[in-house]
Write a protein that binds this DNA or RNA. Sequence first.
RNA 1: GGGUCGCUAGCUCAGUUGGCUAGAGCGUCUCGUUUACACCGAGAAGGUCGGGGGUUCGAGCCCCUCGCGACCCACCA
Length: 910
Amino acid sequence: MKFTTSYEPGEFEPDIYAAWEAADEFLPGGKVGGDGKLFDEDPDNNPKTYSIVMPPPNANGNLHIGHGLTIAIEDSLTRYHRLRGEMTWYIPGADHAGFETWVVYERVLEANKHTRFEYSRDELYAQVWDFVQEQRGNMELQVRALGASCSWKDLTFTLDENVVRRVYATFEKMWNDGMIYRGEKLVNYCTKHQTAFADIEVEHKEEKGKLWDIAYPYDGGEIVVSTTRPETLFGDVAVAVNPEDTRYKKMIGKTVRLPLTDRNIPVIADEHADPEYGTGAVKITPAHDNDDFEVGERHNLPRIQVIGFDGKMLPICGEEYAGLDTAECRKKVLHDLKEAGLLRGEKKIVHAVAHCYKCDTVIEPMLKEQWFIDVKKLAKIAIEHLEAGEIEFFPASKKQVLINYLKGLKDWNISRQIPWGIAIPMFRKVDSDEWIFDSRTNLSEIEIGGVRYVRDEDTFDTWFSSSHWPIVCTNWEEGVVNPYYPLNVMETGADILFAWVARMIMMGLYVTGEVPFKQVYLHGLVLDAHGQKMSKSKGNVINPMDLVAKYGSDAFRLGILRGRSAGMNQAFSEQSAVAGRNLCNKLWNVSRFIQEIVDNEASAPEDATDEQTVSSGTPSSAKSKGLKPVDFSLGLRDIVPEERSDSSTYTTDNMGEDWICREINEARWQVEKQMKNYRFSEAVETLHSLIWDKYADWFIESQKLYKNTGLLMTTLEAILKMLHPFAPFVTEAIWQNLSWTDGLLISANWPSDFKFDPMSAEEFEKLMNIVSHTRSTLQGLSEAYKGFSRADTTLLYGDDTLIDDNSLLVQYLTRVKSVISAEGEPRGLRLAVANSEVYLDVSSEVVSAYADSLEKKILKVGAELDSLNMRMMNPNYVDKAPAELVKETQDLIAEKQGLIERLKAERAAI
RNA sequence: GGGUCGCUAGCUCAGUUGGCUAGAGCGUCUCGUUUACACCGAGAAGGUCGGGGGUUCGAGCCCCUCGCGACCCACCA
């Protein structure tokens, strides 16, 4: 049995994916890619290209729901453009995830009772490399399970040789351009992980804290400063007051005694001190506070580091304090100040505190020599191109958000003190401060002309290398024409707009002179069913693989795309996947039904078909292929399609057929528009409605009476193609099971226009309206009158050729006993259908039981009529609104008028 | 402190230059086994579009204002 009664995704998905992959259908045009030969040198020989890159998931991790969404979106785009005949290149990636992976590996070390300090940098690098290789592969299997039609041959790992080469080339260029400098600045430092971070990697949290007032004495008085960090007073080098603050004016230039020490520090005047805040006097600790660092620079003050890189107080703080961690030290300092009578007060405050985004440790601003990128020029160019509209954003609002960010961007610290990452290609001349660029980072020491140079031990911030992603994935090279760069679209999470998208734009422009992508689509967070952020601690994490296993990959994809729009954090629940599963099953059964019709026709003698069942194009292949199930182990039939054309021809023979052709055209046009505007949710909805509400409920139902096999085949093909971008597996499984289709659906062509008679399609809609009203009234009657039986009821019609011509279909769709002409003697209940004369032949007894419903209808139509009349009575409306609209309103009024008269007559007859 | 987004049916969300009687999925209720599908079919109920102003012939959509929520940025000692 080819078509089982329900679709079982698990039986098809792995084989189908393998078949796609084996057929090389993931490569651009199914032919090129991966070998450096991307396209024909003559641009005239190349069709339109479409390129998109996968934001690389962590190589040794598992996919989470966000990856599921990313892939659902990107693969739908990819498949859609592939079906449209474009040379489509979806490039997968894997991220070494520098810090993330390092944190995981450090835990492994810890569990084995080791620490990073036992090994050299190179040894650690080798260990993590092995660790990642062992763990690798899971992620890639999961990407496959989600159906991503990406070009696996071109998978880019962020530590691949070509990535490193490109990153070094950029770094060298920047170094030569004077955009890289080494500076001792305050950096965000995590004392647990013992590495610095970029500003963007730090998480600020509102926290309750205290503001202490501490007296700094001098001969004949004291000055009271306010601080949240008393433990850093050992690093104080001055007390600052505002030059305009009359309270302190006379003290400027005086020297005060630093408590708990024997040092004296000056009182200086600086705008930084806010007279309104605290006591108006502030201690200046340039080595441990960003503001103070700047004050120190302005006044040429020394920087005294008092906290070590391990988070413990340094010896300079004195025997009693050295070795304490900051919290212990704070306690002791406060205690000692109190003893000395210098603590003047404390106040509860709420302030923002920086934390390590991984371990939550409080980030210390620390004095450290690091490599920095001067970002001013980069940001400026990026802003210019953004303002010129070279990149289109979805949602559009993010463009300005990004520009604002770039405008305030500060120099970018790219040094990380972790071994897992791309080594910084800088070497220091031994016994000097002289640095040179050299890409031989596999060596920890080099010699040039008899001079020894030692490699910098640090690695690059991962964002520095990943900012090259579009460049490295598309194999961009200077001077080589590359139709895949810029990418058509960059799809990623809105949460990394700054960290990644901004940097890709800056780097793309710096390296290639072009923006790296033409459009940016940002998706929001996937929240749980109640709109809460998913987190392990809350226990509300949904694993995409669980849903794939339970309902199928397509169901997950359809579900996660539904009800989701660009840039918004939106809820998701298992229910959505269930709805997706149901749609897949519906389509499966529709296909099964059509296949049965095709089979019956193939086996039946010619004259057995009804006169109206003009099937024009039953292809001979349908007969010759027989009914054997697809055997995937033997390889798919006709893997390389010769000609991609609709395999059946058709003619339309009745209204329903014209109507479905029109509806498919309309839906196709809608989907095209929605895809262009990245409205995936709406596209899925359009297709859901087409397949379920239109194709299955009306067309297939009507085809149970009037079979047009050629049209059934052709329309089904069109529908499979249209849904394929979103639900690739079930559509391909059906395609393979159908007896008459060729090749793989993944590489089929997007459907073209169906020809139809518009008048006829319009007529069918009227018929649908009559059927719906009849059904509704029948249901109303059976609820109003016990013992009412629709199977015993006759539908009468007046002078109405539409029904006369289609009485069989009306009877079939309404399940009444019969549909016959009233022959000028109407009786029973007249239906409230505009422009049509239909009666249900029921007794007056039944009609009176229905009076309540009738009354309700009269009221409802009356209200509608009133509002329409009101509109027409407004002279301004008639005057100013478009004539078309006014005409429409008039027609509506006429229609309602007729309707209400009929209803009233009906009521009077009771 | 600055900024962005959101508030539409019980729930999750659509509603693209202002013009239909405001829609969908899920849920609820009532019928129902009919040449595919109960992962089904037919029908129904359910909304003063967060509050208040304004512009307009016309506002869910534009403007102002208030309220509530989510998120982002920021060195306030």
